[in-house]
Protein backbone atom coordinates (compact mmCIF):
# COMPACT_ATOMS: atom_id res chain seq x y z
CA UNK A 1 0.00 0.00 0.00
CA UNK A 2 2.77 2.30 1.04
CA UNK A 3 4.69 1.42 -2.08
CA UNK A 4 1.77 2.25 -4.31
CA UNK A 5 1.34 5.69 -2.78
CA UNK A 6 4.97 6.39 -3.31
CA UNK A 7 4.70 5.17 -6.89
CA UNK A 8 1.99 7.69 -7.68
CA UNK A 9 3.93 10.52 -6.16
CA UNK A 10 6.90 9.53 -8.23
CA UNK A 11 4.69 9.42 -11.33
CA UNK A 12 3.82 13.10 -11.01
CA UNK A 13 7.40 14.04 -10.32
CA UNK A 14 8.38 12.06 -13.36
CA UNK A 15 6.06 14.11 -15.60
CA UNK A 16 7.49 17.35 -14.32
CA UNK A 17 11.05 16.12 -14.81
CA UNK A 18 10.32 14.83 -18.30
CA UNK A 19 8.71 18.15 -19.26
CA UNK A 20 11.68 20.05 -17.98
CA UNK A 21 14.05 17.89 -19.98
CA UNK A 22 11.92 18.11 -23.11
CA UNK A 23 12.08 21.89 -23.01
CA UNK A 24 15.87 21.94 -23.09
CA UNK A 25 16.88 18.87 -25.07
CA UNK A 26 16.88 18.64 -28.86
CA UNK A 27 14.28 16.34 -30.37
CA UNK A 28 16.72 13.60 -31.38
CA UNK A 29 17.36 12.78 -27.72
CA UNK A 30 13.68 11.87 -27.28
CA UNK A 31 14.45 8.14 -27.37
CA UNK A 32 16.39 8.51 -24.11
CA UNK A 33 14.05 11.00 -22.47
CA UNK A 34 11.14 8.57 -22.72
CA UNK A 35 13.15 6.25 -20.47
CA UNK A 36 13.78 8.79 -17.69
CA UNK A 37 12.75 7.72 -14.17
CA UNK A 38 12.47 4.06 -15.12
CA UNK A 39 14.75 1.34 -13.86
CA UNK A 40 17.27 0.52 -16.58
CA UNK A 41 19.93 -2.05 -17.31
CA UNK A 42 23.00 -0.65 -19.02
CA UNK A 43 25.62 -2.76 -20.77
CA UNK A 44 29.05 -1.11 -20.93
CA UNK A 45 31.77 -1.67 -23.49
CA UNK A 46 33.86 -3.72 -21.06
CA UNK A 47 30.89 -6.06 -20.57
CA UNK A 48 29.84 -4.78 -17.15
CA UNK A 49 26.12 -4.53 -16.45
CA UNK A 50 24.73 -1.70 -14.34
CA UNK A 51 21.14 -1.52 -13.06
CA UNK A 52 19.73 1.72 -11.68
CA UNK A 53 17.04 4.38 -11.73
CA UNK A 54 17.70 6.50 -14.84
CA UNK A 55 17.69 10.19 -13.87
CA UNK A 56 19.33 12.28 -16.57
CA UNK A 57 21.06 12.26 -19.96
CA UNK A 58 22.40 14.45 -22.77
CA UNK A 59 23.05 14.26 -26.51
CA UNK A 60 26.24 12.19 -26.04
CA UNK A 61 24.24 9.53 -24.22
CA UNK A 62 26.04 10.38 -21.00
CA UNK A 63 23.70 8.78 -18.45
CA UNK A 64 23.04 9.46 -14.75
CA UNK A 65 21.68 6.77 -12.40
CA UNK A 66 20.39 6.82 -8.86
CA UNK A 67 21.20 3.99 -6.42
CA UNK A 68 22.84 1.84 -9.10
CA UNK A 69 24.30 -1.60 -8.62
CA UNK A 70 26.57 -3.72 -10.73
CA UNK A 71 25.03 -7.06 -11.68
CA UNK A 72 27.74 -9.69 -11.92
CA UNK A 73 26.80 -12.97 -13.58
CA UNK A 74 29.22 -15.88 -13.75
CA UNK A 75 27.76 -19.07 -15.17
CA UNK A 76 24.54 -19.72 -13.24
CA UNK A 77 25.42 -17.48 -10.29
CA UNK A 78 24.74 -13.78 -9.86
CA UNK A 79 25.19 -11.01 -7.33
CA UNK A 80 24.20 -7.31 -7.21
CA UNK A 81 26.88 -5.02 -5.77
CA UNK A 82 25.75 -1.48 -4.82
CA UNK A 83 27.73 1.34 -6.43
CA UNK A 84 26.71 4.27 -4.23
CA UNK A 85 23.97 6.87 -4.60
CA UNK A 86 24.63 8.70 -7.89
CA UNK A 87 26.55 7.35 -10.86
CA UNK A 88 27.41 8.97 -14.18
CA UNK A 89 28.22 6.74 -17.15
CA UNK A 90 30.18 8.40 -19.95
CA UNK A 91 28.31 8.00 -23.24
CA UNK A 92 31.15 6.50 -25.24
CA UNK A 93 31.21 3.50 -22.89
CA UNK A 94 27.52 2.71 -23.34
CA UNK A 95 26.64 -0.25 -25.52
CA UNK A 96 22.95 -0.42 -24.80
CA UNK A 97 20.33 0.48 -22.23
CA UNK A 98 17.06 -1.36 -21.74
CA UNK A 99 14.11 -0.82 -19.43
CA UNK A 100 13.96 -3.50 -16.75
CA UNK A 101 10.68 -5.32 -16.33
CA UNK A 102 10.48 -5.31 -12.54
CA UNK A 103 8.21 -8.35 -12.47
CA UNK A 104 10.84 -10.68 -13.91
CA UNK A 105 14.09 -8.89 -13.25
CA UNK A 106 16.16 -11.97 -12.46
CA UNK A 107 15.75 -15.13 -14.55
CA UNK A 108 14.80 -18.03 -12.29
CA UNK A 109 17.69 -20.09 -13.67
CA UNK A 110 20.19 -17.83 -11.87
CA UNK A 111 21.14 -18.35 -8.27
CA UNK A 112 21.96 -15.50 -5.86
CA UNK A 113 25.35 -15.83 -4.15
CA UNK A 114 27.34 -13.61 -1.78
CA UNK A 115 29.69 -10.86 -3.02
CA UNK A 116 32.68 -12.94 -1.86
CA UNK A 117 31.52 -15.97 -3.84
CA UNK A 118 30.85 -14.02 -7.02
CA UNK A 119 34.26 -12.35 -6.81
CA UNK A 120 35.88 -15.76 -6.51
CA UNK A 121 33.95 -17.11 -9.49
CA UNK A 122 34.83 -13.99 -11.46
CA UNK A 123 38.50 -14.40 -10.68
CA UNK A 124 38.46 -18.03 -11.80
CA UNK A 125 36.76 -17.06 -15.05
CA UNK A 126 39.30 -14.29 -15.62
CA UNK A 127 42.23 -16.64 -15.09
CA UNK A 128 40.86 -19.11 -17.60
CA UNK A 129 40.42 -16.38 -20.16
CA UNK A 130 43.95 -15.20 -19.46
CA UNK A 131 45.37 -18.63 -20.30
CA UNK A 132 43.40 -18.67 -23.55
CA UNK A 133 44.47 -15.12 -24.36
CA UNK A 134 48.14 -15.95 -23.86
CA UNK A 135 47.87 -18.92 -26.18
CA UNK A 136 46.37 -16.73 -28.89
CA UNK A 137 49.07 -14.08 -28.48
CA UNK A 138 51.81 -16.68 -28.77
CA UNK A 139 50.29 -17.85 -32.03
CA UNK A 140 50.11 -14.26 -33.31
CA UNK A 141 53.79 -13.89 -32.52
CA UNK A 142 54.70 -16.98 -34.51
CA UNK A 143 52.64 -15.56 -37.37
CA UNK A 144 51.38 -18.96 -38.50
CA UNK A 145 48.99 -18.80 -41.39
Amino acid sequence: MDGQGQGQGQGQGQDRLANRHQARTPLHAKALIEELDHKQLVVLRDGRKIVGLFRSCDQFANLVFQNPYERIIVGKQYCDLPLGSIYLVRGENVVMMGRVDEGREIPSTLQLVSPAEIRKAQQAEKEEQLIRGTMLKRLDFLDLE
Partner: peptide
Protein backbone atom coordinates in the same frame (compact mmCIF):
# COMPACT_ATOMS: atom_id res chain seq x y z
CA UNK B 1 20.50 -14.22 -19.33
CA UNK B 2 20.55 -10.69 -17.89
CA UNK B 3 18.73 -9.39 -20.98
CA UNK B 4 15.68 -11.63 -20.45
CA UNK B 5 14.20 -8.93 -18.21
CA UNK B 6 14.55 -6.26 -20.88
CA UNK B 7 11.79 -5.67 -23.47
CA UNK B 8 12.92 -2.48 -25.16
CA UNK B 9 16.35 -0.99 -25.59
CA UNK B 10 18.38 1.99 -26.70
CA UNK B 11 21.52 1.10 -28.65
CA UNK B 12 24.30 3.64 -29.10
Amino acid sequence: PHLLAVKNCFIR
